[in-house]
């Protein structure tokens, strides 16, 4: 499954790297503590978080995540978007809270 499919299924808004929506999604990780995400997420994961600052892009880039989804309609900062476009990391927005969003993506991935 790629990022674009998840965007369509869950009605996400795309805020950066719209040319990278064919990134393959192999799993997911939900978390706001960067050390937890660095230690436990995997390459190809879609990362679900409430953090909106630019350091999330460095984490996603280092871990080679397929993309980042911000929960509860949170908007990324301008610096985050600038970095995400540079690093080609899709940042998306969902109006759902993390619990619901995680459940929906989990169900899509295990189908």
């Amino acid at each position: 499954m790629n990022v674009e499919t998840i965007i369509k299924e869950l009605n996400l808004k795309v805020r950066s790297a719209s040319d990278k929506l064919n990134n393959n999604v192999t799993g997911g990780y939900t978390g706001d503590l960067l050390s937890d995400v660095i230690a436990n997420s995997h390459e190809g994961d879609i990362w679900i978080t409430r953090q909106v600052h630019q350091n999330i892009v460095a984490v996603a880039s280092l871990k080679e995540h397929a993309g980042i989804i911000l929960t509860n309609s949170c908007e990324p900062t301008g610096e985050t978007l600038e970095k995400a476009n540079q690093e080609k990391i899709p940042v998306m927005i969902s109006d759902l809270p993390a619990f619901e969003l995680t459940g929906k993506i989990y169900n899509l991935l295990v189908k």
Partner: peptide, 9 residues
């Protein structure tokens, strides 16, 4: 607040 400093590093 930025998600650092969790005492995991």
């Amino acid at each position: 607040e930025m998600g650092f400093g969790a005492g995991m590093g």
